[in-house]
Amino acid sequence: MESDAAATKDPFLKIALQNIADGTDGEDLREMLDDGISSKMKSDNTASKFFKMLGGYAPTIGIIGTVVSLTHVLENLSKPDELGHMIAAAFVATLWGVLSANFIWLPIGDRMAKISELEVDRMTLIMEGVLALQAGIQPILLREKLNAMVPDYKLKASAGKAPKSGPKKASKGGEPLEDAA
């Protein structure tokens, strides 16, 4: 186990394997690994919430920019030939606020939350597998236990990733003609 732990690049798996090699009790190991997962979730949640908050504030800042710009428009009511350009420029601030919220900040926050969720799922799967190994579970039973933790669509997707013999050329109908290699 120690050599496996040393060879592993995944820090979470490395800690788990090293603790098994050191003879850490199963319940203590579960608690330690659960704490690591909880810590990861809290840290990731903070980062994700930051970008989601930016997405919430961006339209408001854009509207403030528009209102400030419209006050300059009101200062120049004596120049009607310039009002159209000034009003259009004023509304650009709102446009930037809404666009940045919906195309930058909120998607970044959502993406960070999804990546965190996937990472936590991976860490949980590692934890359950390592603890089952420590408990001496049979390999077939372990495989079934871990497969039960993974959604069916992900299992089917990974099973369908068989090595390809090479790229195929397609006809106009989309049917493969022959190997390109």
Rank of each mutant, 00 (worst) to 15 (best):
F50K: 15
L33R: 02
F103Y: 13
D44V: 02
R111P: 00
G23A: 15
L74H: 03
S78V: 06
Q18H: 08
S38D: 00
A7Y: 13
K40V: 04
A88W: 11
A89I: 02
S39R: 10
L83S: 03
K40G: 01
L29Q: 02
A6E: 10
D4Q: 10
A113L: 05
L54P: 09
A101W: 01
I15E: 01
I61F: 14
S39V: 11
A58H: 05
F91Q: 03
G23K: 15
F12K: 07
K79P: 01
M53G: 11
A16I: 03
L13R: 05
T60L: 14
S78C: 02
T94R: 10
K40A: 07
G109T: 08
A93G: 07
K52A: 10
I87D: 00
L77V: 10
K52D: 00
G84L: 06
G109A: 11
N45V: 08
M53L: 10
L17E: 00
T60H: 13
I108C: 11
L77T: 12
K114I: 10
S100A: 13
S48P: 06
T24R: 15
E82F: 03
L83E: 00
V68G: 04
A93E: 06
G62H: 06
I64T: 14
E31M: 12
M112I: 12
G62T: 04
T66Q: 10
Q18P: 00
L70I: 13
H85S: 08
F50M: 11
F50I: 04
I15P: 00
D81N: 11
H85I: 03
K52R: 14
P11G: 11
S39K: 12
K42T: 11
D81V: 09
K79Q: 07
P107D: 04
F91G: 03
L106W: 01
S100D: 14
M86Y: 09
D34I: 05
A7M: 10
S39E: 08
Q18I: 00
Y57A: 14
M53T: 11
G65I: 05
R111C: 08
D25E: 15
G23S: 14
W96S: 09
S3K: 13
S43V: 03
L74I: 06
T66H: 14
S43H: 12
D34Q: 11
M53K: 09
A113V: 06
A47S: 13
K40R: 09
M86H: 02
P11S: 12
E2G: 05
S100M: 10
G36L: 08
K14T: 01
D25P: 07
L17K: 01
L17T: 00
L54C: 12
E2T: 06
H85L: 06
S100F: 08
D28N: 15
A7G: 04
V67D: 08
S100Q: 09
A7F: 13
A88Y: 05
R30A: 15
T66V: 10
I63F: 15
L33Q: 05
D28Y: 07
S78K: 13
K42S: 12
I108K: 05
S100V: 04
Y57C: 06
V68L: 14
M112P: 01
